[in-house]
Amino acid sequence: MSETTIRSGYAKRTHTRILIIGGLFALLILLTGVAATLGSYSISVIEVFETILGGRGADSDISTIVWNYRLPRILMGILAGAALGLAGAMMQGILRNPLASPFTLGIASAASFGASLAIILGAGFAAGGSLIIGNAFLFTLIAAAAVYGLAQIRGITPETMIMAGIAIMYLFSALTSFLQYLGDSEDVNAVVFWMFGSLGRSTWETVSVVAILVGALFPLFLLSARSLNTLSAGDEAAKSLGVPVEQIRIGGMAGASLLTAGVICFTGTIGFIGLVAPHITRMILGGDHRFLLPGTAVVGALVLLGADSIGRTIMAPQILPVGIMTAFLGVPFFIFLFLSRRRNYW
C-alpha cells in the first residue's frame, strides 16, 4: 500500500462515515415527518405540515393536537433517544466496557427509586408530577455521587466504578422493591408504569429542559472524543499520550449521569437505548468517537422515535409503553448486526 492510499483511505473512510451519519439524519427527519402524521385523530399529511408551517388557525383542534401533543412527544423521543445514546456511548468509552450503560451504574435504578418514593410515600401521583421528576433527578445524582465516592477510595478505574455501580444498582433496586411491597396496588401500578417509560407526558417545558441539557453537553462530549479514542488503549497508554484520564472519567460520568437523569425523570426508565444505540453505531461506523458520538445520538433518536411510533399505532388506540417497544424493536436488530458482522467490533 503506497503513501497516497493510507491518506486516501482515511479520507475515504471519513467521507463514508460523514455520509452515513448524514443518511441516518435524513432518515430521522423522514421518520419525524411520518410520526407527525400518525395518531388516532385523522389528520392528513398536508394538514399536519400546514399546521406546523403556521397555515392554520391556532385554536383549531388540529393545531392543538399537532402543537400540544404530537410535536412535543416526537421531539422528546428524538432528544431522549439522543441523550440516552450519548450517555451510553460515554459510559462505555470511559469504562472501556461494552456492558456499561446508565443502568449498569445504578443511575436508572436510583431514578426509579426516587420516583417510587414520590409516588408511594409522597403526595401520590395526582399531585406529585413535579415531585416525581424532582425526586428521580435528585436520586440519580445521589447515585452518581455515591459511585464516584466509593470508586475514589480505590482509585477511579473502570473496575472500581463498575463494582461500585453494581453495588449501588442492587441497593436501589432492593429499596424500590421494598417500597412496592409497602405500597398499595394503585401506587404500585403507577410505579410499574413509570418504570416502563413513556413519552406521553412530554410538554414543551420538558422538551426544552432536555434540549438545553443535550445542547450543552453534546459539544462537551464531542470535545472529549479524541481523549475517549485514546482511552480505549488503556489508562496507562492514554496517560502517556497526554490524556488526563481521571478528569475525563469523572467528567464523562457526571455528563452521562446528568443526561440520563434529565431524560428519565420526565420519561421514566427507558433502559435499552443507552446500551444498544452505541453498539449499533459502533458496528456501522467503527470505534472513532468523533463519529461514534454524533452517530449514536442519531441512532438513539431513530430507535426511540421508531419504537414510540410503532407503540402508538400497532394496537391503536392503546399505546404500548415505549420502554417495552424499544426492546422489541432494538433487540432483533442488534442481534442481526451482531451475528452478521465478521469483525470484532469491540
Partner: peptide, 10 residues
Amino acid sequence: ADVENEWVMH
C-alpha cells in the same frame, strides 16, 4: 389501556 389525548378528542 393507555391512550392519547387526541384519541379522546377524536
